[in-house]
């Protein structure tokens, strides 16, 4: 409990320092803001209820950033080539992740990954719109799913 409070206070202090661009004259108000944020965070997300794996998070973030760069470049190239570059289709994916935050994260990450866009999530089936069905997209979704599972510490 104490450890979580310290960690979070430090995080909020860092955030405040960034928001005021390092000006030293605003720490009075900052202290107030940090206390308010700490209170709200302890209320909304009590410590210990859900633990994220730090290495899993780093793995996910690296995967996410590199793939969103690739996704942007790919779609930009398609836009330059026009509609003959497209071969859209809707694919079905069976969710192995538990419902709740892991599923929602997968669904929303898909919108920024190369060539995929979540369309509908029903129970454990996800319908994905892909811009080009010739690409090995489902294999990439499986990699993303494994990253998210590792981050939340759940089996797929």
């Amino acid at each position: 409990m104490i450890r979580a409070m310290l960690q979070r206070s430090l995080l909020f202090a860092l955030l405040w320092w960034v928001l005021v661009e390092g000006r030293p004259d605003s720490w009075g108000l900052g202290l107030l803001a940090i206390c308010a944020a700490l209170w709200a965070s302890l209320r909304q997300l009590p410590p210990g209820s859900r633990r994220l794996s730090l290495t899993g998070l780093l793995g996910y973030l690296t995967f996410f950033v590199s793939n969103s760069v690739r996704g942007g470049a790919q779609v930009a190239w398609m836009a330059l080539r026009g509609r003959q570059a497209l071969q859209p289709a809707i694919l079905e994916w069976e969710m192995a992740l538990p419902p709740g935050a892991p599923s929602v994260l997968l669904l929303n990450t898909l919108g920024l990954m190369p060539g995929t866009l979540g369309v509908e999530l029903t129970d454990d089936r996800l319908r994905i719109h892909v811009v080009d069905e010739r690409l090995p997209i489902l294999a990439e979704v499986a990699v993303l799913e494994a990253h998210i599972a590792r981050m939340f510490g759940v089996g797929t």
């Binding site: 599923s103 929602v104 669904l107 929303n108 999530l121 029903t122 129970d123």
Partner: peptide, 9 residues
């Protein structure tokens, strides 16, 4: 939006 979509389900 995303949360609502989830709850709609």
């Amino acid at each position: 939006f995303a949360r609502r979509a989830w709850h709609d389900k």
